[in-house]
Computed example of a mutant assay.
Amino acid sequence: MDFKYRIFDTHAHYDSEDYDLDRKEVFKELQENDVIGILDCASSYESIKAVDELTKEEAFIFGALGIHPENADELSEERLKEIKNKIQNNKKILAVGEIGLDYYWEENPDREIQKDTFRAMMNLAKELNLPVVIHDRDAHKDTLDIIKEFPEVKGVVHCFSGSVEFAKECIKEGYYIGFTGVVTFKNAKKILEVAKEIPIDRILVETDAPYMAPVPNRGKRNMSHYIKSIIEKIAQIREIEPKELNIIVNKNFSDLMGIEI
């Protein structure tokens, strides 16, 4: 019998306006193509309500609620309480996220504001005993420093873009490493080295849909079943069967989030 994938997309944004015209049809297509679950991650304050509602409308969608560094200046005490309340009243919210630091875009909020919001979100995760979904772009040192301030908090560094050494430092702190379609790109030498060198029980796979669709769908709107291309590429460099890697990454996510897949 041919192997049948069981895809759990550990990071996506189906609340995005990119799916506004055909969201229901997209969800039907995903489930027809072996997608058993999705972690939909909030980013802006506005998206928090949308993600919360999606988890209630769709049985196979789970959520993470948090403020992305690009929107770090949107957080207030009142909004922090609102996020906490939504998490506490929805068992399908599995994590605090997407949170972190992004120093790539000059128009992003001031770095100190980003750090303050990141710490507030990490404190929330600590208080609620939840894992975090971390965004780190061109901010490896500061990201790691703040991770170390919260040893009780575990999570994933999603869409990982650092070195093998940085990955191993994050893993020491109890974190998993999220791999996107970037591993299928021609210039992906550094991230492939990370995928090859880190412990296999710390690998997660994700789309970050609608962004960064893997080859052969690069340039298209991303979809969760495209994760098969990511699994196949990582399995190739780990010299194992895609079936085996699919089982391993699902167990990794299950272990981190405390849910049965």
Results as ranks from 00 to 15, higher is better:
residue 121 M to T: 01
residue 185 F to K: 06
residue 219 G to I: 11
residue 191 I to M: 00
residue 255 D to L: 12
residue 162 G to L: 01
residue 147 I to N: 08
residue 99 I to R: 01
residue 63 G to D: 04
residue 58 E to V: 14
residue 207 T to A: 05
residue 40 D to N: 15
residue 226 Y to I: 04
residue 150 F to M: 06
residue 258 G to W: 02
residue 21 L to D: 15
residue 126 K to I: 03
residue 222 N to Q: 02
residue 247 I to D: 15
residue 160 F to S: 01
residue 21 L to P: 09
residue 40 D to G: 06
residue 23 R to M: 01
residue 212 M to C: 11
residue 243 K to E: 15
residue 19 Y to R: 05
residue 60 F to S: 15
residue 147 I to H: 03
residue 41 C to G: 13
residue 174 G to Y: 02
residue 100 G to Q: 07
residue 8 F to N: 07
residue 239 E to Y: 08
residue 198 I to W: 00
residue 36 I to V: 13
residue 25 E to V: 10
residue 72 A to S: 12
residue 179 F to N: 04
residue 168 K to V: 00
residue 259 I to T: 06
residue 37 G to K: 07
residue 123 N to A: 13
residue 15 D to L: 03
residue 44 S to P: 07
residue 35 V to H: 00
residue 248 I to M: 12
residue 259 I to D: 07
residue 160 F to R: 04
residue 173 E to K: 14
residue 146 I to S: 11
residue 90 N to L: 05
residue 4 K to R: 14
residue 81 K to Y: 13
residue 168 K to R: 12
residue 141 K to R: 13
residue 243 K to S: 14
residue 213 A to H: 00
residue 227 I to L: 15
residue 35 V to W: 00
residue 37 G to W: 01
residue 148 K to F: 01
residue 175 Y to W: 10
residue 44 S to D: 04
residue 251 K to D: 12
residue 183 V to T: 09
residue 101 L to H: 05
residue 216 P to I: 03
residue 103 Y to T: 09
residue 149 E to M: 10
residue 151 P to H: 05
residue 199 P to V: 02
residue 211 Y to M: 10
residue 70 E to G: 14
residue 57 E to H: 11
residue 231 I to H: 10
residue 181 G to N: 10
residue 181 G to F: 02
residue 228 K to T: 11
residue 216 P to M: 07
residue 18 D to G: 07
residue 209 A to C: 15
residue 194 V to Q: 00
residue 199 P to E: 04
residue 179 F to A: 03
residue 27 F to W: 06
residue 19 Y to N: 06
residue 118 F to G: 07
residue 231 I to T: 11
residue 65 L to W: 00
residue 183 V to L: 05
residue 42 A to F: 08
residue 95 A to C: 05
residue 139 A to Y: 00
residue 193 E to A: 14
residue 117 T to E: 03
residue 208 D to H: 03
residue 229 S to R: 13
residue 171 I to M: 05
residue 56 K to W: 02
residue 74 E to K: 04
residue 80 L to G: 01
residue 187 N to C: 05
residue 18 D to T: 11
residue 87 I to C: 11
residue 116 D to Y: 13
residue 249 V to R: 02
residue 16 S to D: 14
residue 245 L to A: 07
residue 99 I to Q: 02
residue 230 I to C: 08
residue 106 E to M: 12
residue 199 P to Q: 07
residue 28 K to T: 13
residue 120 A to P: 08
residue 28 K to P: 09
residue 207 T to D: 03
residue 241 E to M: 12
residue 78 E to R: 14
residue 14 Y to F: 12
residue 259 I to G: 08
residue 253 F to E: 04
residue 182 V to Q: 15
residue 140 H to W: 13
residue 257 M to H: 11
residue 223 M to W: 11
residue 64 A to D: 03
residue 206 E to L: 06
residue 114 Q to A: 01
residue 178 G to A: 06
residue 235 A to Q: 07
residue 79 R to Y: 13
